[in-house]
Design a protein around this nucleic acid. Sequence first.
DNA 1: TATGAATGAGAGTTCATTCAT
DNA 2: AATGAATGAACTCTCATTCAT
Lengths: 204, 204, 204, 204
Amino acid sequence: MPKIVDEQMREATRQHIIHEAAHEFARLGFDQANINLIAEKAGIGKGTIYLYFENKRELFLAMLRFIAQTQLAAIRGALAQNGDLQTRLEQLFLAFVRLAEEESDSFNVYMSALYGVNRAFRTEATKLLRDYVAVIAMVLEEAQARHEIHIDDVDTTALMVLSLTESFILSARVLGQSQQSLMAQATRTAQFILQGLGTPLQPE
Amino acid sequence: MPKIVDEQMREATRQHIIHEAAHEFARLGFDQANINLIAEKAGIGKGTIYLYFENKRELFLAMLRFIAQTQLAAIRGALAQNGDLQTRLEQLFLAFVRLAEEESDSFNVYMSALYGVNRAFRTEATKLLRDYVAVIAMVLEEAQARHEIHIDDVDTTALMVLSLTESFILSARVLGQSQQSLMAQATRTAQFILQGLGTPLQPE
Amino acid sequence: MPKIVDEQMREATRQHIIHEAAHEFARLGFDQANINLIAEKAGIGKGTIYLYFENKRELFLAMLRFIAQTQLAAIRGALAQNGDLQTRLEQLFLAFVRLAEEESDSFNVYMSALYGVNRAFRTEATKLLRDYVAVIAMVLEEAQARHEIHIDDVDTTALMVLSLTESFILSARVLGQSQQSLMAQATRTAQFILQGLGTPLQPE
Amino acid sequence: MPKIVDEQMREATRQHIIHEAAHEFARLGFDQANINLIAEKAGIGKGTIYLYFENKRELFLAMLRFIAQTQLAAIRGALAQNGDLQTRLEQLFLAFVRLAEEESDSFNVYMSALYGVNRAFRTEATKLLRDYVAVIAMVLEEAQARHEIHIDDVDTTALMVLSLTESFILSARVLGQSQQSLMAQATRTAQFILQGLGTPLQPE
DNA sequence: TATGAATGAGAGTTCATTCAT
DNA sequence: AATGAATGAACTCTCATTCAT
């Protein structure tokens, strides 16, 4: 079965290139990142990259998709466990804190793409944003089904939740807050959201 | 007083360059923006830009500062009028919706700088973030002085308010929401915040 | 006799590659032609070409030789039939018109090689030129033996005849003359040559 | 008048670049010629070439036009003097011999363009071919006006004359004939043409 | 023998910056 | 002060060729 082995090798190399590319793109941005350097760091020849990706742009997009998958998987994982809404919102918050810490490069790349000028990159980054909203909306709907809350517009509310977790965390980090101090705010933020939704505070 | 006249001329030219630069940087991003084109659009010679700005980087920074001033002035203006906290939060929300619409270029430039890779740009963009938080914190403290609310950590709360306004609005716009539908959410968002802060809903 | 069979197979593959190469070289020129594409069109692996030809240059030379053989065979064939000089010159002219039409790619490749910058290619293309002259010279000598004409310098005259047929036809084609209008000039050109040689016009 | 001086300087530089480019293109062909090297040989910076020519292709075309002008001027000059047709045909022949010797680079570039694969280059080279034919046609018509000859199709005849001079000379050179031996054939070729046209040989 | 993945030299082109005028 | 011609570093991408399988 050399075909399958080859295919696995190829996919492994692809992933490897994407990893190095992610690092460089995060460090320097799309324009300043250097294909030669990415190849060098990946331990392959300069031309080899073009056997795996059509051009620099496609490599960047592939990397964006990879980041999106990874991040979404992490967030989904954090919300997979059962529990009441407060617990799950706390889990969501903590998951984002962890991601923002461990994958800060990815977040920078993602935000740059989301608010940058390249249309294709924005489109790709927007998909992740939509996925985040969808995942949170699902959690909210489950809570609603359990009569924990009552919401009119689930999607808008989900976006508010996302702003109070992801955006809040990113801003706080930019302002210099440590991971620890951020984690300490998980409960409080979850309470803020629940109260905001009109749900009376539940005793911890 | 030729000196002063000269000084005024010089400042006017500077502002003029910054304006054209803002347009190009917003349109193309820092790397893709072309100094020659900016000069041409500003109606001055290529070399002249370097009499006003040390290099491309400094021009970008000056433009960032200009954007920050303009935006902060708009937000300050929106919060200047009196009224209870709910009203002022609504005003804040509406002000951001307007800004995001009318100065969307500036927002993109600002967000790119905030989450981009250039350290100097991040530092500058962070200042604006800090200023926003400070302005909101002041509003919150005034409300607290009037016993409308009670908050422990004013700065963190201010950042939450900012996330629920600015970040929320930007995300919503990226997802395709219109200015109108956004404006319709001002009251609701303000209520969400007030409830989140533990304040019983006030009759409108 | 597997050896001979193998040898035949090998020669067949070689010819096949040359054919595809001729097409690509004629279409794009030596530099722009792509070895990978030639291999693909020939239905063989990229590396296989190098088992048949040392490098791109050698492949081009082999193709030049192939073109030369084909063309010379066509011209020889046209002159093989008997007849007086006028008839044979007409045949020569018509043969070149046909070749220029049906093998215009080959002519372009040949002319590019003849007047191009690559020394090796020029040398190869010059051989064909010499062969043409030799063939024509032979015809002239036969006519001389039959006392149809009297010439001092056969080779120079042959070159003049070649210029008035091949070069004339190629130029006319570049200037847009159709195959038909060219063919109509066969008799006239032959007469021109004969008169040029000092031979009184023969009644048709 | 700095404007005019500048304009003259600019034109001088342009001509200078074209000269060096002609040399390189003749030596290596379009694809192999190196813009960097052309710049270097012209004693200017690599980027400077792009202030004078949009790209490599345009530089090549400009050079083709320059060659065409130069060659056509030489041929026109040779035919300017009065004299009977025989004399003028000899002058034409000698002019081409001289050109082929002194500007052999130009001839190679021109022929490569004429029979090469690049459509734009062919179009440009064809113009020169047309001009040659036109100049010769004019000479023939003048002779006809003086009743020296009688021709039906002037253009076709002009092309025959061109083939018997330019193409003949180029072929002869490729076959190794020296300038001297070529020059010695001027009279004979002119006679060949005149006889070919049906004109009784004039006593020298 | 046949293959095609991998390689890396190489080249056209852009553009921030300089500096003579 | 203002200019813009000149510069050359830098970068993406192509493709002939190699070689392990």
